[in-house]
């Protein structure tokens, strides 16, 4: 009998701490599958953020490093400069990447640092109980926007892919989601392209994954998936924003 589906070798066989319906588990699995597919488990170094994915190193069987809130791109830079032939990726949430770590992500992209960033955007701070994120949608209710995000007070949701794609140093920038098998498949392709960009030493790559937080969105997991498709993608359109294979596309 042919084995058609199994746990990726890189994924550690343990229950995760993530809430039911959370998207992190899916993204972790995709990363593990890609590392297996590319056969780079023994040369990959991952960066775990501060945020819900802080314990990512409990689930991925590779060398991993924790970084302070917002600093994974800087730490990744420091690692990559020591081991330019290893594969270095950071895994970051929206608060980490688009609020406290905005300077780091912009300048790391601008230096064209040859690393891959997996940016999981679920529009809310989960680990600290559901405050507004820089990517929280207008009118979205959170602990700190109890009447909904008001642009006059809280500003607008930040579109990081759009910002990063106009930076000369970035080479591959894409936004995707995990709301359907088709989208998950697409997400895997794009993350794989990010790793490929790095393997070929082409420079900075970032894949933003629109993901769910049913608990702090106050929805069921299914409603959360629908919310991404129907609401989030209006503010955060999916697509490839920059691709070294087709530099004129943007």
């Amino acid at each position: 009998m042919e084995l058609t589906y199994s746990k990726p070798k890189t994924l550690i066989d343990t229950p995760t701490h993530y809430c039911p319906g959370c998207g992190h588990g899916i993204v972790h699995r995709l990363i593990a599958e890609i590392i297996d597919d590319l056969d780079i488990r023994e040369k990959t170094i991952g960066l775990a953020p501060v945020g819900c994915a802080v314990l990512a190193y409990n689930y991925l069987d590779i060398d991993m490093c924790e970084a302070a809130h917002g600093r994974p791109p800087a730490v990744a830079t420091g690692i990559k400069r020591v081991h330019p032939d290893n594969i270095v990726f950071s895994y970051q949430g929206d608060g980490d990447l688009a609020a406290i770590g905005t300077a780091e992500i912009i300048h790391t992209a601008n230096r064209g640092e040859n690393i891959t960033v997996i940016f999981v955007n679920n529009a809310v701070y989960g680990m600290t109980n559901g405050q507004m994120a820089p990517t929280t949608l207008l009118n979205q209710r959170t602990l700190t926007t109890p009447k909904g995000r008001n642009e006059k007070i809280d500003g607008y949701p930040l579109r990081m892919c759009e910002i990063l794609s106009i930076i000369d140093g970035s080479r591959f920038i894409a936004r995707t989601s995990i709301t359907s098998p088709a989208n998950i498949k697409k997400t895997k392709q794009l993350i794989q392209k990010g790793f490929q960009t790095q393997i070929e030493k082409r420079g900075f790559s970032l894949i933003e994954v629109l993901s769910t937080c049913p608990v702090y969105w106050h929805m069921t997991p299914c409603e959360s998936m629908k919310y991404i498709d129907e609401q989030m993608t209006k503010t955060f359109p999916l697509g490839v924003f920059k691709d070294w294979e087709n530099e004129n596309q943007f």
């Binding site: 170094i45 490093c65 970084a67 302070a68 600093r71 791109p73 800087a74 730490v75 990744a76 830079t77 420091g78 690692i79 990559k80 400069r81 020591v82 081991h83 300077a103 780091e104 912009i106 300048h107 230096r111």
Partner: peptide
């Protein structure tokens, strides 16, 4: 490697990264 970094904060975390990777930094 010499990098003029965007901030003191990023600089110390690049040191963190290079130290974690085993470099003298």
């Amino acid at each position: 490697t010499f990098i003029q970094v965007e901030s003191e904060l990023a600089a110390i975390y690049m040191v963190y990264g290079s130290a974690a990777a085993g470099g003298r930094t």
